[in-house]
């Protein structure tokens, strides 16, 4: 009985603050600084290239994580849908290729080619982009508005295992909300994914971000 009481209190507490995300990297409400990186076609792609975009979908993903692989087709389809709407989808691979050889630039190029990615797939070799966002797993989605303000962070939908089991499409709902000048609800979700291997510790990243590096 006592344990049930504690459980109720814990769940109530958790739900009260359920929309407040962990406190590292960009949070909902933060404005993202422009970033750029080498894209699989060899050119540098920057967020500045998308003048007039109505919003952005940034997804940290990779070649090797099975969860990211389960989302690959969904990401491809979403990007195609967004192409007509002036909403760039930018995929970023921040995995350290020393730890994960399947995420080398060559492998990224072959993945993009074979699956005919219609969106930029950036190679975050220095991990500067993932450190600024402090994205933690793959896939990890950030939806920004036209001013590059973060409006949603988290999972694409509520059923990684397979698309037929999806009930709520968090990212698409966030896009719809932003287009109506509303705040996405939820603005933050958690999801199981493969941890992104970061060479920098959290403390160092916070220090670097604060000093504008």
């Amino acid at each position: 009985m006592k344990n049930l009481f504690y459980l109720i209190i814990t769940i109530a507490f958790v739900n009260l603050f359920a929309t407040i995300p962990p406190s590292a990297g960009y949070q909902v409400g933060d404005v993202v600084t422009d970033f750029s990186a080498k894209e699989v076609n060899g050119k540098t792609v920057s967020t500045k290239d998308f003048e007039g975009a109505k919003g952005f979908v940034i997804v940290f993903t990779c070649n090797t994580c099975p969860v990211a692989q389960k989302y690959e087709d969904r990401i491809i389809q979403l990007a195609e849908k967004l192409n007509d709407k002036d909403w760039p989808l930018i995929a970023i691979n921040s995995n350290d290729k020393g730890i994960s050889p399947g995420d080398s630039f060559d492998k990224m190029q072959s993945t993009s080619k074979s699956k005919k990615y219609s969106f930029p797939y950036l190679y975050d070799e220095l991990q500067s982009i993932v450190n600024a966002f402090w994205a933690t797993e793959t896939p990890h989605f950030y939806v920004l508005d036209a001013n590059k303000k973060v409006k949603y962070i988290g999972a694409m939908d509520d059923h990684a295992d397979d698309v037929t089991g999806v009930k709520t499409r968090y990212v698409e709902n966030a896009i719809d909300a932003i287009e109506k000048n509303q705040d996405p609800n939820p603005s933050f979700t958690r999801a199981v994914g493969c941890g992104i291997n970061k060479r920098t510790t959290l403390a160092t990243s916070v220090l670097l971000n604060k000093s504008g590096i």
Binding site: T136, R190, V192, G193
Partner: peptide, 10 residues
């Protein structure tokens, strides 16, 4: 329940 700051990486 495991950790408040855990966003999902395993």
């Amino acid at each position: 329940l495991a950790d408040w700051d855990w966003s999902g990486a395993i």
